[in-house]
Amino acid sequence: MTWVLANIEQIWSLTLDHILLSVPPILVGFLLAVPIGWLAHRYRVSRGVLLTVCGLLYTIPSLALIVAMPTLLGTKILNPANLIVTLTIYAIALMVRTATDAFDAVSKDVTQSATAVGFGGWRRFWQVELPLAGPVLLAGLRVVSTSTVSLVTLGALVGMSGLGYLFTNGYQRNFATEILTGIVGTVLIAIVFDVVLVILGRMLLPWARVDTAARRNAKTATTKAVTA
């Protein structure tokens, strides 16, 4: 604990770097995965191709990808873009399948009736399909967020800042407290991100909770009726 207090400034600055490295992959990954997922949902041909490619992307070892980035992007070896692009690719790989499922899960009755009352394709996407895919998209985004925050620690191996530095440094010095601090810090960031996402979800999708509650009530009602 005394070590933590003595180094609080450095830990805080590593935490900020960690957050700065985590946010872009999560956001960009999400924004790119949603349209890709929609394409996979909409067209049968693209579905197979897109989902397979995304599945394969995820099997590339992360460290190898980070190391290869400077060659692929023409960046300097210490450029944070290397890490950000790598993690964005992983975020997309994780998110596309969920996004596809999210759009698949939107009831066909609802989209058909939306068309029948006069939604054009574009409006139907923004006002009907996207919001109704929201709950599943959010669930996927929470997984991506947590996984990205944890993957950022890998950056330390290629000289990037972030709480991962406490792992490598603590390992070299054989100092458990420092490693533990890194773990706790990473977990805390992941939790804070998750809470923010859940709150955002409640604000943007107020109907989703009502919907689940109604379904649960209906289920208990049936169970009661059956047992009665």
Partner: peptide, 21 residues
């Protein structure tokens, strides 16, 4: 089609309401 549909009332089985509105 879109304009035509907006001028015609449509009611379907299972109401087809938008669950998020």
């Amino acid at each position: 089609p879109v304009k035509l549909r907006r001028s015609i009332g449509y009611v379907m089985q299972n109401s087809g309401l938008l669950p998020h509105r």
